[in-house]
Design a protein around this nucleic acid. Structure first.
Length: 100
DNA sequence: CTTTTGACATGTG
DNA sequence: TCACATGCCAAAA
């Protein structure tokens, strides 16, 4: 597994319950500011295995960026379970974005 | 080989 | 707020 992916996973695992990070933010922390898309791809393929809190990663607008409705709903429920308020698939980043 | 397609971001108008 | 352009890069077609 390449070092960038390692850092992405490590960064996501550092997000506490009740907090969220954006794809771009994760990419920056992992050392490649322009790799937001790769972060998304990594989650799509590896979320199952690495007991990863993938549901705490959303897009820059604070929205759940998933196409598949079932998975999107699952993410919303997980977030609400942790106390994150989700309205119409959107989260208020001012309140819930996690800052390193 | 090239083109298309994303669980995206950011700047501009 | 929305639309559009551009950057990025891997996987699929």
């Amino acid at each position: 597994m390449n070092p960038f992916t390692e850092r992405v996973l490590k960064t996501i695992r550092s997000i506490p319950p009740g907090g969220v990070m954006t794809y771009g933010q994760v990419a920056r922390e992992a050392g490649n500011p322009r790799a937001a898309r790769q972060v998304a791809r990594i989650l799509h393929s590896m979320s199952q295995k690495h007991h990863l809190p993938w549901h705490r990663v959303i897009n820059a607008k604070g929205e759940i960026a998933i196409k598949d409705d079932e998975t999107a709903l699952e993410q919303q429920l997980e977030l609400e379970d942790e106390g994150v308020v989700v309205i119409n698939k959107k989260v208020n980043l001012q309140d819930f974005q996690w800052r390193i």
